[in-house]
């Protein structure tokens, strides 16, 4: 049997270190998710307003964040803030800021899309039945918006988790970085460690994101409108 370098995983605290690295990645993405979702909902609702100034500002924000590769945003925040403003923020902090900016932009676009997808006659039918504005939103519009939104936002969350694999570039020791360190340290004794470690990382990401994706798929089928 070829040496897959799996033994390295079980050596010392290597597996625990990898899990710790995954923990860092999850922590950053979860903090960003928890801030992005409410902010995104507010901005998304604002985008459906008639005010042209608010609309234009939000549009620019959304486009800029989307056009920039996440990597560029990370560099910009991590190195840029230090150089330009003399503020020394940690890699983890920079990552949280960038992921939050990105998550908020994406979420607001999802919310806007879900809101404008509700046909006018849904509002009118509700009104014709005697619902007032509040009741129309509470019983008719928001439940439909949420049903459209939940699977989409779950997908966004998995994208955010996966994208944390970039933050090693600004020195955050997350799971990929830990993996590289382990491979480096074992270069002499087990030259094949790379395969085993990357396989392990693959499995870790998979088991972090897969249940979330399954949930999204389940909700999508259940709430098809």
């Amino acid at each position: 049997m070829p040496d897959l370098g799996l033994d390295v995983l079980l050596k010392g605290k290597n597996l625990a270190r990898l899990l710790g690295g995954l923990g860092v990645a999850m922590r950053i993405s979860m903090i960003a998710v928890v801030i992005s979702i409410p902010l995104g909902i507010i901005l998304g609702a604002l985008m459906t307003w008639k005010n042209p100034v608010i609309k234009a500002i939000l549009r620019v924000y959304l486009e800029v964040i989307r056009i920039m590769p996440q990597m560029v945003l990370l560099f910009l925040f991590y190195f840029g803030t230090t150089r330009a403003f003399g503020i020394d923020i940690s890699g983890e902090m920079a990552s949280i800021v960038v992921f939050t900016l990105w998550g908020t932009a994406e979420m607001s676009d999802l919310v806007r899309g879900a809101l404008i997808a509700i046909p006018v006659h849904q509002y009118e039918s509700a009104e014709a039945l005697g619902f007032n504005r509040m009741q129309t939103y509470r019983y008719i519009i928001i439940p439909q918006t949420v049903r459209r939104l939940i699977p989409l936002s779950i997908n966004l969350i998995t994208r955010m988790i996966k994208t944390t694999s970039l933050i090693l570039m600004i020195g955050v020791v997350e799971v990929l970085k830990v993996g590289q360190q382990i491979i480096e340290a074992n270069r002499m004794v087990s030259p094949n460690a790379a395969f085993g470690i990357y396989l392990a990382i693959f499995m870790l990401y998979f088991f972090a994101c897969w249940p979330i994706s399954m949930l999204a798929r389940y909700l999508e089928n259940r709430w098809r409108v």
């Binding site: 046909p119 006659h121 849904q122 009118e124 039918s125 509700a126 009104e127 014709a128 039945l129 005697g130 619902f131 007032n132 008719i140 439940p143 439909q144 049903r147 709430w223 409108v225």
Partner: peptide
């Protein structure tokens, strides 16, 4: 007092306008 009035008038539209959820 619009809701009170609206309850006295039922309306059915051309487009299927049931609440899908």
């Amino acid at each position: 007092n619009l809701t009170a009035l609206r309850q006295k008038v039922g309306m059915v539209f051309q487009s299927y306008d049931l609440f899908p959820h």
